[in-house]
């Protein structure tokens, strides 16, 4: 897979990039955004599942005099949060992440040619 194997065991170009301040910054940016959001949606999803499972009466409460239940509203809330996190990530990635990733990519691909 690697076109850099000939350089072993000396440090490879990729290792130089990996050590660089720019790449470490990029990695931090990525993980600082992605990991908390993964935690948030997983916690929210499982909170919802546990409510549906063990808080039957609360989830069965009707909203006003309609037949819409709290369970349905929270379920639709899962849809809303999924759409929102998707758009948040896409716009973050386009604006904050891609420019740095592109700069590094050009640097690396220029170096390898």
């Amino acid at each position: 897979m690697s076109d850099l194997q000939a350089e072993e065991p000396a440090e490879t170009a990729y290792q130089r990039v990996e050590r660089s301040e720019e790449f470490q910054g990029l990695k931090r940016t990525f993980r600082n955004f992605v990991f908390p959001w993964v935690a948030i949606f997983l916690v929210w999803y499982f909170a919802y599942v546990l409510l549906a499972n063990y808080a039957h009466d609360f989830m069965s409460t009707r909203i006003g005099d309609s037949s819409i239940t709290v369970a349905l509203v929270l379920g639709l809330g899962q849809f809303a949060s999924t759409f929102a996190i998707t758009m948040l990530y896409a716009s973050w990635a386009n604006k904050k992440f891609d420019p740095h990733a592109d700069a590094l990519r050009e640097e690396i691909e220029g170096e390898n040619r």
Partner: peptide, 15 residues
């Protein structure tokens, strides 16, 4: 060296 390549490629799309 392999992990470095993978990590750099996975985040930057290089190569």
């Amino acid at each position: 060296e392999k992990f470095a390549e993978m990590e750099v490629r996975s985040l930057t799309g290089a190569g």
